[in-house]
Nucleic acid binder design. Sequence first.
DNA 1: CTGAAAGCGCTAACAT
DNA 2: ATGTTAGCGCTTTCAG
Lengths: 338, 338
Amino acid sequence: MSERPKIKDIAQRLGVSPATVSRALADTGLVAEPTLSRVREAAKELNYRPNVSARNLRTRRAMAVLMVVRDVGNPFYLEIMKGVEAAARAAGYSVLMGNTENDPDREIEYFDMLRDGHADGMILMTGKLPSKPGSHSEISADLPIVVALEMIEGSGFPHVQIDNAAAAGQAVRHLVELGHRRIAHIAGPLPEAMSVRRLEGYRGAMAKAGLSIPEGYEQRGDYLLRTGQELCRRLFELPQPPTAIFVANDEMAFGVIHELRRLGRDVPGDVSVVGFDDLYLSEAFYPPLTTISQPRAEIGREAMTALLDMLSGGDGPAEPLILPTTLKLRGTTAPPKN
Amino acid sequence: MSERPKIKDIAQRLGVSPATVSRALADTGLVAEPTLSRVREAAKELNYRPNVSARNLRTRRAMAVLMVVRDVGNPFYLEIMKGVEAAARAAGYSVLMGNTENDPDREIEYFDMLRDGHADGMILMTGKLPSKPGSHSEISADLPIVVALEMIEGSGFPHVQIDNAAAAGQAVRHLVELGHRRIAHIAGPLPEAMSVRRLEGYRGAMAKAGLSIPEGYEQRGDYLLRTGQELCRRLFELPQPPTAIFVANDEMAFGVIHELRRLGRDVPGDVSVVGFDDLYLSEAFYPPLTTISQPRAEIGREAMTALLDMLSGGDGPAEPLILPTTLKLRGTTAPPKN
DNA sequence: CTGAAAGCGCTAACAT
DNA sequence: ATGTTAGCGCTTTCAG
């Protein structure tokens, strides 16, 4: 037990060939019963584990997938990672962590890791493809890649996502139904697809309700807390400030609420706020945040499932997989003061 | 450019041997100048990337590390992961995600992944070693493992952590200095080392201040939000409820504050609360949470640095590496009403 | 400084 | 049903 045993050790010990051991351990029904059990026992006894590099080299598969996000530090990804990890584990895959921080070089690097055998497939949660300067590496649509959460239009990759526009519309409709007419929107970073969709959902719902969007009611943010504060302040420097704000993500919404408090406005008494994402602690917030909830763990799971399908020869879902969102009615929305 | 080029392709194209190409690409100063540049150019031109499985098999290293946490879904780990990832990347390592969910089988599995060449080293953030039933696999202290955040006493592995007892003491002292005398504690899951230390810090500071700890003032929790609520309620069913609570982590602290609000007690007017961790959104909370801040990114970075040292033959830090904490004074503590 | 040759540990033809 | 053989792509002796 001093050295790592190899297949050969088991074979010699049992007087069979390495191939037989390999086959027995792989559970191909190709090994007969006296031998089968003996091999298994010997393997257990020696505490044998196959060398993955050797196996990967031979089989040309790494049994690993790459999960690439824009920022591992963002709590938003947590449950997705969890879903991906669980589905991957269940299928015997391990998960490599990728973090681009929107750096094109790093984005390219992760694509390269696919080519060089680090991983067999990739779940991409960045909103775009790396633009390679004068390079080769065509990013062909038949790479085993699934785009989750975000969308990369025209890329040809399978997508797992939500209907951002519809969800945004639902959020705004809720405010309209409460009686709000002056509803502002703090958007994400434009022109990223996700932000654009949420903005479109806002505009659509406003139009459908016959409400106009005054100058300055559409603020462009970047999903960060401080920006929420900042843009909220700007909204309340307007001649006619809004009575409700639909914010493109929870984190900025927290910033908004923070700022409203500083400005002496009560939430939801004076101003209603709706977020988007339903972060881990949004419910524990005060007031508990009314927000759009995404099925994050499920997004992760479905993305991994689609990827596994592709890895075993499938094409993945041809149409984008759209998962349902729900509006969580909590404590930051109320009818306007009058 | 249709097939992945291998070293042999470059060699043939240039009329040199594969060995030379390998050496040139590896930047051993063993290849002379006319050849060196030609190889590099050809490699770039063909967009060559070495096959990692083959290389790993040959060199017996995976250039990957395993980062094992109890629950990937916990926001607490985010910045640590970020620190680990950054340090790993900088050294050319990739990071495999491990998630035990306190399942002993899975814990063992990650140890096995070390043996089978999946990864070269491991950063463990679980509080204990897997107890293997009747098994072999001695977990010897010279495995390339660094324990971060948690502590595994007597394991012999290098540790990167904070002084939990001292930090807890500081939190309690702050409350004492504000004038509180009835200070309760909601602990983490005992008898885990981290929770015990924080509890000890609480007790020590209370003793030093000459304060007694009434029956029921020490509640045993599990770091979860709901438990914070639950235990807070229990605290206020006591004949003499506390005027201040030191909670072993932020998440439970949020639960506590939530519950206090339900009970109609003002924070910090009626009751002061101090947390521990300084989660991502603790500052944005209302009221902003007074808490102990850990240098999480740095813990990740230092752990990875220590691991890299071990992987290149070092012993890692002999003494536990203790990183400094700070008490963040924010909005949930005030003098007692009297 | 470069080439030839061996071999990391495994699996997959191909043979028996 | 099992054994024999070859080879995945790379690095590293060992020669020259």
